[in-house]
């Protein structure tokens, strides 16, 4: 188990620490959870928390919103009011498509 970590012997250190603190070690997983909670992410302590479970509806919603905004943008740049506007970066493409 210790081989998977960059610093060998870390499991043993944590095990000793837990035993000294009178923690009951049920399995190897207890030691690993402690190690994982101490693992650094860009120099910060990582606090494991569910990510997908609370966030999936908002990720799906973000995708839907992105699609709706893209459709809205497409409709807006092709609208007669802005299709020939010099500020419209798609004006050349729209004019080209209109010729075909």
């Amino acid at each position: 188990m210790g081989k998977t970590f960059t610093r060998p012997g870390r499991c043993e250190l944590v095990r000793t620490f837990l035993q000294n603190q009178h923690f009951e070690i049920h399995s190897e997983a207890t030691v690993c959870i402690v190690i994982f909670s101490k693992m650094a992410f860009l120099g910060l302590r990582k606090w494991p928390t569910p990510f997908l479970k609370p966030m999936w509806p908002f990720m799906a919603a973000g995708t839907i919103t992105f699609y709706l905004v893209a459709k809205l943008q497409d409709a807006a740049v092709r609208s007669p009011e802005f299709a020939k506007d010099p500020r419209n970066p798609y004006a050349a493409q729209i004019a080209k498509e209109a010729h075909h």
């Binding site: 509806p57 908002f58 799906a60 919603a61 973000g62 839907i64 919103t65 709706l68 905004v69």
Partner: peptide
């Protein structure tokens, strides 16, 4: 677009949940 995009995303997300 930022504010409405955010609020529409939250609204759809909450409804999906």
């Amino acid at each position: 677009i930022v504010c409405l995009g955010l609020s529409v995303t939250i609204f759809i997300g909450v409804t999906l949940l």
